[in-house]
Structures are given as structure tokens and as C-alpha cells.
Design a protein around this nucleic acid. Structure first.
Lengths: 106, 106
DNA sequence: ATTATATTTCTAAAATTATCGAAATATAAA
DNA sequence: TTTATATTTCGATAATTTTAGAAATATAAT
């Protein structure tokens, strides 16, 4: 179950366009950014952008809030954290990582 | 460039079968496991498994070492680390994560 | 040499994803 | 109420991925 949802989230992040979108949103922080602003940044047709944003929303990596005509996309840091945690579990946490830079504080 | 390769790696991890494979290998640690052992664990046809393993190899998440007839698959923790680092950059490192559990040691 | 084991390559079908123009919807401004 | 802005839905096509049986290869054991 957790593996399934994590795989889906990783898959959604595993596309250049979507990773760019998500990264841009992360850069904008907690307020996120309107779809139109993302479009200016990424430079793809609105329908294509909408499709990719929907996929990110579908796995919870983005939440949307409407302010009149403008639809804000807000990155869900907690969800990203869950993904990172999954990747780290049994790896860094288990002391298997070479560098140790991800050692969790006890 | 970094975004491209990271997206490809995320995409490879973003498949239930491959994530299971990779996770199993991570569990086995630095020695990794033979293809046949993975097959017993995951339970899919050899040709399908071979395909998925190849994809993981293609992005560097797995390295293969042959010992006579047996081909060992070894998880590349450093590569996984790179992926995690990318996801964390401008997020946790920038102090945007809610929990702070990923705060890097200064 | 023959047989057994481990794994891959080939091939082909089914499923999913990506792309984008055109039309539709929703909300606000004139 | 007409027009403009912001974004989505529809529909269709191209591209990629997934799946797996059958045949091939590679290496070792008998």
C-alpha cells in the first residue's frame, strides 16, 4: 500500500516537465504559484500544463486553491517528505549509505 | 542536466515492480542479490524481470557483477543519495519542510 | 559432448502516457 | 450583458512502457 502510493508519486515526479513544475513550486514556497505563472516559467501549452498539474494533484504532491479566476498550486512538502522518508528507510536510516550525510538526528 | 537524470531515476523507481526490486536489493545490503533470487522474491517471469532490472541499471541505480552463471545486482546507494539530495534541495535544506526532521547537520 | 542452470534477447500485443489544438467553463471587468 | 482572462475538458495522435512466451546465449557440471 505504502509502496504503491510511493511508486505513483515517484512516477509523477519522474517526468522532466512535472519535475520542473514541482521544483518551481517548491522554490516559490508555501504560497505556491498560479497556473498561469507556472506556464510562463515552463513555457508549454495550457492544456498540456493542466494535464501535468492534474497528475501531481492526483498523488497529493500539489494542492490547489482558487482565488477568483486564479488557481494557485501549492506544493505539499509533507507529501514530498513522505516520499523521501520511504527512500531513506532501510537505507540511510539503516546505516547503509556511504556518506552518512543523511543520518537522522537521534 | 541534473534535472533530466534525476527525473529518469525517479521514473524508474516509480513503478511498483521496480520499486519492489530496488527495495529488496536495498534490504540485502552491499552484496546485493542474484537475479534468480530476486525472481523468487518478486515472482514474475524472467524476461519481465530482466527488462525491469535493465532499466534500473540504465540509470545507475543498480550495478551488476557476474559470478560465473550468477549475476549479482547491487544497489547503488550513492545514486539513491543523489536522488534524495535533489528532492531535498531547495526544500528541507531551505528550511521549508514542516517537520524539520531532515535538517542537515551543519 | 551432453545436459542443466542462469539469464538475456527477440518479438509482438496491450496498456498507459504525452502532446496539443479547439471548444468549453468559470469568474470578473467594462 | 458583452467582453476579457484563467484554466479545464475533449478528442485524437504519437510515443513509450509493460508484459510475457519462445528462442538464444553463457557458463558450469556430468
Amino acid at each position: 500500500m505504502e509502496l504503491e502510493i510511493t511508486a505513483r508519486r515517484l512516477a509523477e515526479l519522474g517526468n522532466t516537465t512535472r519535475l520542473s513544475i514541482f521544483r518551481y513550486l517548491v522554490k516559490t514556497g508555501f504560497e505556491g504559484a498560479p497556473v498561469g505563472q507556472i506556464q510562463k516559467e515552463i513555457g508549454i501549452p495550457a492544456s498540456t500544463l493542466s494535464h501535468h498539474i492534474n497528475r501531481l494533484v492526483s498523488v497529493g504532491l500539489i494542492r490547489q486553491v482558487r482565488d477568483s479566476r486564479t488557481l494557485y498550486c501549492i506544493p505539499q512538502f509533507e507529501v514530498l517528505e513522505e516520499v523521501i522518508k520511504f527512500l531513506m528507510s532501510e537505507c540511510c536510516a539503516g546505516g547503509k549509505c556511504s556518506s552518512g550525510i543523511f543520518e537522522q538526528t537521534p
